[in-house]
Design a protein around this nucleic acid. Structure first.
Lengths: 213, 213
DNA sequence: CTTTATATACATACGCGAAGGTATCTTTAC
DNA sequence: GTAAAGATACCTTCGCGTATGTATATAAAG
């Protein structure tokens, strides 16, 4: 085939990404063949190599779609103005992100690929690196919020901002893995919402807190 | 080569499993070649096919090593006799399992393979199935313990045994993922111990608990 | 106690398809 | 006219499955 208009080329690119999303999900990244991706997208491998160079390039381009999602969570976690309580603000942001995941099947597929259809070995190092950085940034945002809450006297001294952020991050991650694996044996936003509020109500400063152990 | 004595054959089998552990970890399950596994074990592909039929068989045999580990956690979670508090008992069992993971690099490698070096696609269904069952059993044990605690009046009514088990399971899983990915940026047993006790001290029945939101 | 028979525990060789990289060709937009 | 946007063809590598070879452990038979 011949040269397409720029818009058509962009459409081809998007079609390839959509196809990769589907094929990677079904076959796993390592077992997926570029030829199948191309066929699903309605073109040939020539187009794949033109737009993404090789399989890793294609994968990284897909990954960027997910990074956009994570950026959104980070945006939500930014304390906009002086809202009443940073803790409540965090809970709302997290719940919102979970609702997004539930409502947007494409995001769920992307997350599934990155967490369960991909082997993070040496050649995938750039992807792993990006993922770790994104995670660290989210944790940093959480810590900031806890820091603010602590300064407002809303946190129990039992929980340092650092530990609270680590706890919350692990908690959310754990729920995400369970949810992705179990094919919706529970509603993500519901349980995460409940869990996060439960944790926050516990970490919040209260005078008569019984100490366990 | 010729027929070996039964003991020698078992040694070969173990050597192959050890080699698979190493190669799967480095290359990922999908990209690993049976030939490399055999070479690392000091034999040829003939031995691999003899002992495990194919790659999936080899993988499942490796997986069984990890299942033995999970069985150990389940054993620990069994309430032995009438120990004082089921909650404390759970915390001890979990902490013990985490210490095991830290001290036993082989277990860590196995868990890394199963969680980060393996793409769970259709052909891996038997492996995925086994993993889900093992997880469910652990959750069931947790729920039983929470049930017992509730009957002894040790649980806040805000936490049903079901939800508490889901929460705790997700929490531990989240920490495990973070730990495996981050190359020990925190000590697993320390943080999990802290987190679990923190959660339990929160879920425990106490009269003057402030309700958040 | 031999001898024989058979299953065992691999090694070697062959065949083959699948998959990725690269080079070249073809149009067409700009 | 030139470079973009792909299609097509070719080549090579890799890795799996299978088939077959082979020497020995082992147990039964004599």
């Amino acid at each position: 085939m011949a040269r397409r208009t720029k818009q058509e080329a962009d459409e081809t690119r998007e079609a390839l990404l959509d196809a990769a999303e589907q094929v990677f999900l079904e076959r796993g990244v390592a077992r997926a063949s570029l030829d199948e991706v191309a066929r699903v997208a309605g073109c040939t491998r020539g187009a794949v190599h033109w737009h993404f160079r090789d399989k890793l390039g294609l994968f990284l381009a897909l990954d960027e779609r997910l990074l956009l999602l994570q950026d959104e969570l980070k945006r939500r976690l930014l304390c906009n103005g002086t809202t009443n309580s940073p803790l409540r603000h965090m809970a709302d942001a997290i719940t919102g992100a979970m609702v997004d995941l539930e409502e947007n099947p494409r995001r769920r597929r992307l997350l599934t690929i990155m967490l369960q259809r991909c082997e993070y070995v040496a050649e995938m190092a750039p992807a792993l690196q990006r993922r770790r950085e994104a995670d660290q940034q989210v944790r940093a945002k959480l810590r900031e919020q806890f820091q603010r809450a602590a300064e407002m006297g809303e946190m129990s001294e039992a929980w340092s901002p650092e530990r609270a952020a680590l706890f919350l991050h692990a908690l959310i991650g754990g729920f995400l893995y369970e949810w992705l694996r179990g094919e919706a044996e529970f509603t993500l936003s519901g349980e995460v919402n409940n869990a996060v509020r439960g944790f926050l109500s516990c970490a919040v400063a209260k005078p008569g807190a019984a100490t366990f152990y």
